[in-house]
Amino acid sequence: MTSQETRRGRDETEEERADRMWGELIQEVRVAQTGVQILFGFLLTVVFQQKYAGLPDVDKTIYIVTVFLGASATGALIGPVSLHRLVAGRKVKPEAVRLASKLTQIGLFLLLATMTSSLVLILRVATSGSHVTWFVGVVVAWYLVCWYGLPLWARRRHTTR
């Protein structure tokens, strides 16, 4: 058997592969961007609510950390768009795809941290602090299974060597 016969996958050049991967990455980023932008927009309004002034200092600190995480996630998930605009036509698409992928992975991790922190804050206020750790732990475990566990399992199970 020749290597051509045993090879699986697409028959594409590095540039064609980069074009395809870029399109797929941008579609994925659109989903994450929408979520992080809605969450971040909501977070920005919280400080202007009357109830904010009465929050304990620990909750205000959680809020500030959450806003910082949301801003960071927004930056990382919008970064691939700016990257593409600044390097378009410079014949560096394969490198740009790799860098944009890393930014997206960082953005997703920061989105996870933002959502976790948001849950902590909301549940502390909504439940007077009772059982917050358990509720947040269950939701974060679910996020980890959906965002990392299942994809890594599928990659390991279905990737041919």
Rank of each mutant, 00 (worst) to 15 (best):
S3W: 11
E5P: 01
E5L: 13
E5A: 13
R10K: 11
D11F: 10
E12Q: 07
E15Y: 03
E16N: 06
A18R: 00
M21L: 14
W22K: 04
W22R: 05
G23I: 00
G23Y: 06
E24F: 10
L25S: 02
I26P: 09
E28F: 10
V29L: 02
V29P: 03
Q37L: 15
G41L: 01
G41I: 12
G41F: 03
L43F: 05
T45S: 08
T45W: 01
V46Y: 08
V47H: 02
Q50L: 10
K51I: 13
K51Q: 15
G54F: 12
L55V: 08
D57S: 15
K60A: 08
K60W: 05
K60P: 06
T61E: 09
T61Q: 06
I64K: 13
I64R: 10
V65C: 12
V65L: 15
V67Q: 06
L69W: 07
G70P: 05
G70I: 09
A71R: 05
S72I: 01
A73E: 04
T74D: 05
G75Q: 02
L77M: 11
I78N: 14
V81G: 03
S82T: 12
L83E: 02
H84I: 05
V87Y: 10
V87I: 09
A88L: 13
R90H: 01
K91P: 03
K93D: 06
K93V: 10
E95F: 11
A96M: 02
V97C: 00
V97E: 11
R98A: 15
L99H: 03
A100K: 03
K102I: 14
T104C: 11
Q105V: 14
G107W: 10
L108I: 04
L110C: 03
L111G: 09
M115N: 04
M115S: 14
S118E: 06
V120I: 15
L123V: 15
R124F: 11
R124P: 08
R124D: 12
T127F: 13
T127M: 10
T127K: 03
G129L: 01
H131P: 07
F135R: 04
F135H: 01
F135E: 14
G137H: 01
V138D: 09
V139A: 02
V140G: 02
A141H: 08
A141V: 05
Y143H: 02
C146H: 11
L150D: 07
P151G: 00
P151R: 04
W153N: 06
R156A: 08
R157I: 10
H158Q: 14
T159P: 11
T160E: 12
